[in-house]
Design a protein around this nucleic acid. Structure first.
Lengths: 233, 233
DNA sequence: AAGTGGTCTAGACCACTCA
DNA sequence: GAGTGGTCTAGACCACTTT
């Protein structure tokens, strides 16, 4: 019995995964090169390349020119997190989204903020505080600093109807950014907004985005106790 | 002045990103099809395809057959998290890694565990508790259930020298899994292990992995106050 | 120096989806 | 039905890295 040819890159990917999982190719093993695999599978080398490249991107394979392709010794799991607009996140759960702007003011930010955003320490920035609701229950508190030197249009936006979360994505594209997840104890203000006890463990997301060398916005999203961020591996 | 041809897919990707960012192509706009872009850039359609496909994977473009390619209205940020072996995570920070096995026993897991792992509710499972250290300070507590029906070799492993975290990756490949991040208040045992106050806000990672339809392991990693999980956007 | 993966090309066919 | 992206092919050249 001869095997049928694997016609598409997904089939090749699945077969390679199967062999690794069946321990036919063990962690650390060198697997055949693209040309040989293409011959075995009866497809073009580009097809094998696409399959192996995809597996390497997920961390299952290590590939190096000349050295060849090896099964990763300790596959670093890569989880892809989708960070949607909060409104979509809530609506995606089948809940009704609500939004309340709590504050919009001009202030000189703490040194930590101006430092990380690389703005002059004494310059005022636009500061926002808002509450996102799901089915009329608090879903997240948003605390945000906006660099109006980078996004001048934000100066004229009241953010009463639309959250900065949503407005910025449509009006201020960014080139790159950082995101950090952590846990923090609720202070009095947060406890009041999120209807929880002072000191309760809150899930916190900090995000800082850049337009090339200019900072766009720094935001902290604070979620009530019990909130989970989930994704597939 | 005519533009030089864009020779590789990275250049095409960068040019498309530049046009979107310069608002030459605005959110919601339909951009030219692959054939036209290939003609304009002086490269093959496959090159344009690779560039646009990559941008679509990061959420910047929406592509649909026949409907064409549009600039995403609200680019869903995709953050790729690397979840390495804890030892590598610690060593990557330039710290010295340490490991202590605290417990290894057989027990009937709580219903929530056997339920999510789809194992018989009354069957005993291998249960582990361990402490990971960085420069002799507590880095994370690991609480783990192992389905020995799926990974029988784990029955003979004491996990004294090597953490289950590391052993399983090398000995029990998984096909898929779920991961969840949250915040939790420290109970007395956790507070003692992590040298923090009872009730302190801890960062928690829950992970459940599968070998096809069979669960492999369910693990909870608990990090001390202040711990951050960071990544680029 | 040589072997491997990385990519580009030109052409082709197909799958999906909109009108 | 027709337009678009998705993919495959066969061949070619190049870049990187190890020997």
């Amino acid at each position: 019995m001869t095997k049928p040819a694997l016609r598409d890159w997904q089939s090749v990917r699945d077969e390679v995964r199967r062999r690794i999982h069946a321990r036919q190719w063990k962690p650390g093993d060198l697997i055949p090169n693209e040309t040989d695999l293409a011959a075995e599978f009866g497809c073009a080398r580009a097809t094998v390349n696409r399959a192996l490249r995809t597996l390497a991107e997920t961390g299952l394979l290590d590939r190096r020119r000349k050295a060849g392709t090896r099964v990763a010794l300790q596959p670093v799991a890569k989880a892809t997190l989708d960070i949607p607009v909060i409104r979509h996140e809530v609506e995606g759960r089948g809940q009704t989204y609500g939004y309340q702007r709590l504050a919009r003011d001009w202030a000189v930010p703490p040194a930590q903020v101006s430092g990380s955003m690389r703005t002059p320490a004494s310059r005022q920035m636009l500061h926002l505080c808002a509450l996102h609701l799901a089915d009329d229950l608090p879903y997240a508190v948003e605390q945000r600093w906006i660099n109006t030197a980078t996004v001048p249009a934000a100066e004229r936006e009241p953010f009463l109807q639309i959250s900065a979360n949503e407005w910025l994505l449509a009006h201020a594209p960014y080139t790159h950014g950082d995101i950090a997840f952590s846990a923090a104890a609720a202070d009095e203000a947060e406890a009041a907004l999120l209807s929880c006890a002072v000191g309760a463990a809150l899930f916190v997301v900090d995000r800082l985005t850049w337009d090339n060398a200019a900072s766009v916005t720094k935001v902290r999203l604070i979620f009530p106790p019990g909130h989970q961020l989930r994704t597939a591996l």
